[in-house]
Design a protein around this nucleic acid. Structure first.
Length: 578
RNA sequence: CGGGAAGUGGCGCAGUCUGGUAGCGCACCUGCCUUGGGAGCAGGGGGUCGCAGGUUCAAAUCCUGUCUUCCCGACCA
């Protein structure tokens, strides 16, 4: 592509609306433009990059034997009512009516549609296993779209759905996709981790997320310093043998009221009474599917609502408001405690199992209790894992220390089991002649989000540094003196040579000053720059520059053809690509 | 949905407090000049200041309402 014929509006200044680096650079380098909150147009450069990502994803999915399909964006409400998600999915599901007043939605995901398709088409175990995928537009009406392509409302997703005759087959399909995802993210050149994850709204029995490591990531991931354990914070198990720093006495003294005026928070009580936060218990009051419940957790920990939701099978969970807290405790907010509490259930974190001599709210304004013995004083409904792990906690696998990293979720694999096939009555005839439900899995990749994530991980003060595998152009030829015929002739020869090799080249043949061209090409993140100028020609050389390492080599013109391929190979190797 | 900020040529901003009919930089067009890290000079085009209503002789500026965007939180494959 000749730059003089290309359309790529670059900006010198950061757009006011962008906060994170990838968002700024995507706009500045001319890849995307915003149409509305969370809705973006892809300009030619952005579309080229997107196409490269899609190509890799498609090649790897095809290699694994998955079959590409294309499912409708507009979906009838009936399917969603059948699966139960029409009411459950919430406002993220964009709904509308057609001219006949029928309810529809724009697909945020396609489990319903694919299950409906398969239940009508696949009748025999002989047709299984089957894995169908598509790469196209999803719409989720996010409460708060943000960070450019990171959290859009409209975005491109690769979603795949596997159908197996039994659990064993389903796990095989799952592991196959797990392996495919590793291949995909390696080929793209991302630094990432696969972590154990919560299943959320999609549901199902277990899942892994693929997280690109970046400080701006929205998710916290927990990794072990010693073994391979890695998990989303939402899912990470707290080892229940973890010892609270509590002095355990054989006998615990009786509960004793203590005056704690105006001390509502754990920090305040801890300071006022001069005791460690770990000796204080927090009692958090929630409304879970219409019932009052209390969660009792160590004072130094945070409640993990995802864990509470999934282990108690709660659909709707929210904190009790001030009025409700007063109704439950009979006192002001800040003095709730688990003793004689007027709730439907009291769930105590496993870490508190058997703990004595703790401090808790007394359900009386300005008072706390000393000498709380959980077993003696609390009517515990159940002990469950309710809190987030902390850094330095022991690894649930090997006991070594855990540490936190920030990650951007770019892929997610779920083992769904029979969740959707049962809900939608999708069955086949197995070899024993009996009807059975399909055992399903689903597998998503945020294709557009990958572009953001790649930039968050690879940039410098001059702009984007694209991995060569997804760079919109792999090589840029910068002709510095376009009025010099020798420069232009050589540039054209190089351009034709590289293009004939199937390499995507941007030839900057614009009538601009050299500095202007350098700035543009750097900003756009093109991995290899070939600089051809009068100055170099006088010495009989051209220059190759590696965008990532800034390394520049001078190559005699006669050796260009062999050297460029060698240089290119080295660039790919540096990225760990092949 | 709660809290905060902001809407002025394509982009980035000033002007608003203290009303008097819109300005700067970049970009764009023309010409000259320049050419190894976003050059310079000269000339030029483009906006009735998010929208609606109100106050006033007069509103970008004051008042009311509304829409949009961004940030924090809640939420979230």
């Amino acid at each position: 592509m000749r730059f003089s014929k290309f359309y790529c509006p670059t900006l010198k200044e950061d757009p006011a609306e962008a906060e994170v680096i990838s968002h700024k650079l995507l706009i500045r380098a001319g890849l995307i433009r915003k149409l509305s909150s969370g809705i973006y147009s892809f300009l030619p450069l952005g579309f080229k990059c997107l196409s490269k990502v899609i190509k890799i994803v498609r090649e790897e999915m095809d290699r694994a034997g998955a079959l590409e399909v294309m499912l409708p964006v507009v979906q009838p409400a009936e399917l969603w009512q059948e699966s139960g998600r029409w009411d459950f999915y919430g406002k993220e599901l964009l709904r509308f009516k057609d001219r006949n007043n029928r309810d529809f939605c724009i697909g945020p995901t396609h489990e319903e549609v694919i299950t409906d398709l398969i239940r009508h088409e696949v009748k025999s175990y002989k047709q299984l296993p089957l894995n169908l995928y598509q790469i196209h537009t999803k719409f989720r009406d996010e409460m708060r779209p943000r960070f450019g392509l990171m959290r859009c409302r409209e975005f491109i997703m690769k979603d795949a759905y596997s159908f197996d005759r039994d659990n064993e087959g389903a796990e095989k399909s799952y592991m196959q996709m797990y392996d495919v995802y590793h291949r995909i993210f390696k080929r793209i050149g991302l630094k990432y981790r696969a972590v154990e994850a919560d299943t959320g709204q999609i549901g199902g029995s277990f899942s892994h997320e693929f997280m690109v490591l970046a400080d701006t990531g929205e998710d916290t991931i927990v990794v072990c310093e010693s073994c391979e354990y890695a998990s989303n914070l939402e899912k990470a198990e707290v080892v229940s043998s973890y010892k609270l720093d509590t002095t355990q006495s054989e006998k615990c003294a009786n509960l004793q009221e203590v005056y704690t005026p105006q001390k509502h928070t754990v920090a305040e009580v801890s300071e006022f009474l001069g005791v460690d936060k770990t000796k204080i218990v927090k009692t958090l009051l929630y409304v879970a599917d219409g019932k009052y419940v209390a969660f009792v957790i160590p004072g130094d920990r945070d409640l993990n609502e995802a864990k509470a939701r999934s282990s108690l099978k709660i659909n709707d969970l929210r904190m009790a408001n001030f009025e409700e807290v007063k109704e439950i405790t009979g006192c002001d907010v800040g003095y709730a405690g688990p003793v004689s509490l007027n709730v439907d259930a009291i769930y105590v974190d496993k870490l508190l199992l058997g703990k004595k001599d703790l401090i808790c709210g007394a359900n009386k304004t300005d008072y706390h209790f000393r000498h709380l013995d959980i077993e003696r004083d609390v009517s515990v409904t159940d002990y469950i894992d309710l809190v987030n792990v902390l850094e330095q906690d022991p690894c649930p696998r090997c006991g070594a220390r855990l540490k936190f990293l920030k990650g951007i979720e770019v892929g997610h694999v779920f083992k769904l089991g029979e969740k959707y096939s049962r809900a939608m009555n999708a069955k086949f005839i197995d070899s024993d002649g009996k009807e059975k439900y399909f055992v399903m899995g689903c597998y998503g990749i945020g294709v557009t989000r990958i572009i953001s994530a790649a930039i968050e991980q690879n940039y410098d003060e001059n702009g984007i540094i694209f991995p060569p595998s997804i760079a919109p152009f792999e090589v840029a030829i910068l002709s510095l003196d376009i009025k010099n015929q020798e420069v232009m002739k050589l540039s054209e020869d190089f351009y034709n040579y590289l293009t004939d090799k199937g390499i995507d080249v941007l030839w900057d043949d614009r009538d601009e000053r050299p500095g202007f061209k350098f700035k543009d090409i750097d900003l756009m993140g093109i991995p290899i720059q070939v600089v051809i100028g009068k100055k170099g020609l006088d010495e009989g050389i051209v220059e190759f520059k590696n965008r990532k390492t800034k390394e520049v080599v001078k190559i005699p013109i006669s050796e260009f053809e062999e050297k460029i391929l060698e240089f290119r190979e080295n660039v790919w190797k540096e990225w760990g690509l092949f």
